[in-house]
Write a protein that binds this DNA or RNA. Structure first.
Lengths: 205, 205
DNA sequence: ACAATTTTTGACCATTTGGACAGAAAAATA
DNA sequence: TATTTTTCTGTCCAAATGGTCAAAAATTGT
């Protein structure tokens, strides 16, 4: 029957709730700033209960980070040969921008971790991530060599896409303060238009 | 004579030492993560001594943030009419990039503060900073209208300069991990070359 | 040299916080 | 229904940490 499955589902749901609460807390205050009590409150349960499911605050943080990493680099994984290389890069940029819009908490959590030295991601950055980026950089370099896009350093191109798209999520407070409240609603449409135009100009041969 | 001056100078020096130590600590671990003891150690004095000079950890943090803000926006202040608007913008970009290279700790401290909601800078972001950016955006918009540079949204152009230059300081761990150790030495030269080419392409009419 | 002032620190305190533990409540199993 | 297992929480504890305080040490002024 499904009696064991039922329990498992409940467990999985509880863990989901805790992870969601923790993500919010970590994005707001970082690993140190976020307290177990705050996470428990956001999750609607007691502090020992949170510990019961994850063992420690650190374990929640690490698990979140690891599972998010995969989601985070997926758009780059999907960058591949295309009828139009420029369109492929623009699509990648747009997916990253949409992730900033839809997952600002995830973006902030990553940013905070890396900003503070990425103590629990260093191996993956210089391992998997470096391999992935090198791979895609080679692809882009190929397009450059064939004259399909401008000749630019592909690694720095990727950095620039990361920087510009994540800026809107990570520093949203600053962006919104500078633009003023009126432009807040259409912000991501503006950003999309600007970045598209910007990268088209920079990349066409 | 200079007997009172002498004391004042010593006081000033002590404060300088503490501020430098605190900057390092805050950049590494953020406001919460940095402890008074760590700051005191880095400054080579006892914990109560640090408190004696600044009253509280928070006071050090706030003072650092305020004094750094002025330095931080100076390059934008200096953006003005020029024989060549494109050159003026490139100069601005380069000054920002150099600040990332020379003051990574300051960059990280700002980034962390804004990332976490900028609780003690909000008024200045939507006040002074917004006014300054609006002013310079108007200048750039003028250049656009005159056909001296491409027609792009000047606010987002400024954001893109902030994002791309600060990325190299704030996320240096990631950048260096992805590029590998060999490219670390010439990193900022690479970045300068890339960004210059990039912005020239994007901005020329 | 002596008094007054400033600087410096060791010892201490109150609060916060991660998390251990025993046992209650609930659920599954029999 | 009785028993076993799982879930959940009130209570407590030890460590970390921001900050106080009294007094020592150094400096300054006379």
């Amino acid at each position: 029957m499904n009696s064991p499955r039922k329990v498992t589902r409940i467990q999985r749901q509880k863990r989901e709730v805790i992870l969601a609460a923790a993500l919010e807390a970590f994005a707001e205050d970082g690993l140190r700033g976020a307290t177990l009590e705050k996470i428990a409150d956001k999750a609607g349960m007691s502090k020992p209960h949170v510990v019961y499911y994850f063992g420690s605050k650190d374990a929640i943080y690490t698990e979140l980070l690891q599972s998010l990493l995969e989601v985070w680099v997926q758009p780059l994984r999907d960058l591949s040969e295309d009828a139009d290389p420029l369109a492929a890069i623009l699509t990648y940029m747009r997916r990253k921008l949409r992730m900033s819009q839809d997952m600002p908490r995830e973006s902030k959590m990553f940013a905070t971790e890396i900003l503070h030295g990425a103590p629990r991601m260093r191996p993956q950055l210089s391992g998997d991530l470096k391999a992935l980026v090198d791979d895609k950089a080679a692809l882009i370099a190929g397009w450059s060599a064939e004259g399909k896009i401008a000749k630019i350093d592909p690694h720095h191109l990727i950095f620039s896409i990361w920087a510009m798209t994540q800026h809107y999520a990570d520093f949203d407070i600053q962006v919104e303060a500078v633009l003023g409240p009126d432009r807040k609603a259409g912000l991501y449409d503006e950003a999309d238009a600007f970045l598209t135009e910007f990268f088209v100009r920079a990349l066409r041969p």
